[in-house]
């Protein structure tokens, strides 16, 4: 058990699916050999298959405390990044050439069902779900590894794969129920989100959080009463873990999405939310009902001009406060040496 735990909260009411977080992470951490297919941060449309495709059906995690066998996602499951014929299409000078993926049928990309969602017009619906490794309190990955190559940092609970000890056995990939571990075929090791620990160590928030134009990501310690995480998770209880039934006690939490009203045959609002509550319950558990009710109440207060600390936090009126103690500017980082062996 770690002494403290850092965590992230994402307010799904504000995610616009822009993938700035995905690109911020990709540019910072996964541009090296064997990492082409890696997106430690992904944003998928719900309902949908997600990344890796159909990850929720791939097993792993715990049931009644017992580890559950799981599928080991391969590059194809994650969806290959496509290469395009940019040169020929834009600079080739041949009138017949159109922009197209290289290498024939490229297969499903990582975000192939973007904006498909569910329901039928006029009550069709979707929302975006950004995901990263949850740096779980009960990490299935760590417990599965026969080489003890996965560590949970004592000081902040960040879960890291020790690349010197990893032998590429990939039990962690099978055991993680969130399927957030990638295999580097060039180096024969597993790799995953490191929660930007070199930034956090210098008081700078994660790249995905800091870069998010929706300002929906909060970072901090779970036990810091003045920080946003403690307030959202414990004080107001509006941030919930994804699939708590997987048994790993995730430390990434979500404020579930409200949605506009459904319509009756005459096109009048019925008052029932477009995103089905049982679908949200299947993702975030039973607490989702009380959370949505509280969000509606607090939003109403705000509308009436009454004070709501919860709404002030979620609106991110003071954006820099989203990051708790990790509020330093990235430019303040000194002496970071990236070691790639």
């Amino acid at each position: 058990m770690s002494k403290r735990q850092v965590a992230m909260v994402m307010d799904l009411n504000k995610c616009i699916g822009c993938q700035t977080c995905t690109v911020a992470c990709k540019t910072l951490w996964t541009r090296n050999e064997g990492q082409k297919h890696m997106l430690w941060n992904t944003v998928n449309t719900q309902p949908g298959q997600g990344t890796p495709h159909n990850w929720e059906k791939m097993g792993g995690g715990f049931r009644n405390g017992e580890p559950q066998p799981g599928h080991r996602p391969g590059v194809g499951d994650f969806g290959k990044a496509w290469d395009f014929n940019y040169k020929e299409a834009f600079h080739g000078g041949e009138p017949g050439v159109r922009l197209a993926p290289l290498g024939g049928e490229p297969g499903q990309g990582p975000n192939h069902d973007e904006d498909v969602g569910g329901g039928t017009y006029p009550d069709n619906y979707f929302f975006y779900l950004p995901r990263l490794c949850n740096h779980c309190t009960h990490p299935a990955c760590l417990e599965a590894c026969p080489r003890k190559a996965i560590e949970k940092r004592e000081e902040d609970g960040i879960v890291l794969i020790n690349e010197d000890h990893c032998r590429g056995f990939r039990f962690c990939q099978e055991a993680c129920p969130y399927k957030k571990i990638y295999f580097n075929e060039a180096r024969g090791i597993s790799q995953k989100c490191i929660f930007c620990f070199p930034r956090l160590d210098q008081g700078v928030a994660n790249a995905c959080a800091r870069q998010c134009p929706g300002r929906l990501r909060f970072v901090g310690y779970l036990d810091d009463p003045d920080g946003p995480i403690h307030k959202l998770v414990h004080k107001y209880g509006v941030a919930l873990p994804l699939h708590p039934e997987y048994g790993t006690e995730p430390n990434v939490y979500y404020v579930p999405p409200l949605s506009p009203s459904k319509h009756d045959a005459d096109g009048k609002p019925t008052g029932e939310m477009q995103i089905p509550l049982d679908y949200l319950e299947s993702l975030f558990g039973k607490k989702v009902h009380q959370v949505l009710a509280l969000l509606i109440d607090e939003r109403e207060k705000n509308r009436k001009g009454e004070k709501s600390e919860l709404m002030d936090i979620l609106i991110a009126r003071e954006w820099i406060k989203n990051f708790g103690p990790f509020d330093k500017h990235p430019r303040s980082i000194e002496n970071i040496k990236v070691v790639v062996k």
């Binding site: 017992e66 580890p67 559950q68 066998p69 799981g70 299935a140 417990e143 599965a144 590894c145 026969p146 039990f171 099978e174 055991a175």
Partner: peptide
């Protein structure tokens, strides 16, 4: 060495 390996 691990419960996961045994179970799977």
């Amino acid at each position: 060495p691990t419960g996961y390996v045994i179970k799977s």
